[in-house]
Design a protein around this nucleic acid. Structure first.
Length: 269
DNA sequence: ATGGTCGTTGCACGA
């Protein structure tokens, strides 16, 4: 269950989310991964590229359209798709001042309204960045309320920097008092669920401790010390169409990997 | 063992 199966069954769209931790640094791995996994839609985070520095031509040559919301050396989110990419929107569409950081981009792909999100890290519970994180999550829900309907096919996927519950943390005791596991962050995810979204991975794997991020330090990946913070959140109708989902741990191995592995989901269309 | 490694830029800081 570690590597996505080759496409061999009915009509579906293969969607993935991957925090690449610098698209420039990751291009060799990205190129290899596209050839191996053959995704139809990929939501990327932490491109760390200016808006115009996105390698759109590279993806065009592979048959993908793209939209990038970049800001330079930090953050940056993108969607690439070979099943259509319509009505792209950068950032929040809620009439308020734009988010100063590039953390959200949305487009319609294969009839699904898809958002690629990079939720703020939070740093420490008493840090301004943590308050920004909680405010950002509230604003995400308000943005969805204003722009989407939970009765349509909507997927919000990306690096949430939140482990939904203790099954999603290798050693919950070690993280008490840290970001990613605090009750207000988890409550923010539940607010998204109350609006109408489901954590697709957990729906398919109720008991599995499978992670999507491992620290680069101290051999964390090899020791299984990780967290599941890269999520595919889908409205009920979209979640019902998700027939297979897993984490591509292969992509975390080998030379110059991102610290995140892609989460891959096959969706009936 | 309160460490460890990457990425950015620039010789520190974010994750």
């Amino acid at each position: 269950m570690t590597r996505p199966p080759p496409i061999a069954y009915g009509s579906h769209v293969r969607l993935a989310t991957w925090n690449v931790n610098s698209l420039r640094a990751r291009m060799p791995r990205v190129e290899e991964w596209f050839a191996d996994v053959r995704p139809d839609v990929v939501c990327m985070q932490e491109t760390k590229l200016a808006e115009d520095a996105f390698p759109a031509d590279f993806f065009t040559a592979l048959g993908y359209e793209s939209v990038h919301h970049g800001q330079g050396q930090w953050n940056g989110v993108a969607i690439v798709s070979r099943v259509g990419l319509e009505n792209p929107v950068r950032g929040f569409a809620d009439g308020r001042d734009p988010d100063p950081e590039a953390r959200l981009v949305t487009a319609t792909c294969a009839g699904i309204r898809v958002s690629s999100v990079y939720v703020p890290n939070g740093r420490e519970l008493d840090h301004d960045h943590y308050r920004y994180k909680l405010a950002w999550m509230k604003r995400l829900v308000a943005h969805l309320e204003a722009n989407e309907s939970p009765s349509t096919d909507v997927i919000v996927t990306g690096d949430f920097n939140i482990a939904p519950d203790d099954r999603d943390v290798h050693d919950p005791a070690k993280y008490v008092g840290s970001t990613h596991v605090s009750e207000p962050e988890r409550e923010a995810l539940r607010e998204l669920e109350r609006w109408g979204m489901t954590d697709v991975f957990r729906r398919h794997h109720p008991d599995e401790k499978l992670f999507s991020w491992w620290d680069y330090r101290a051999g964390a990946f090899n020791q299984g010390h990780g967290m599941r913070i890269d999520l595919v959140m889908a409205t009920a109708s979209a979640a019902t169409k998700c027939r297979w989902i897993s984490v591509d741990r292969q992509a975390r191995k080998g030379d110059k990997p991102s610290d995140h592995a892609p989460v891959v989901v096959d969706i009936d269309v």
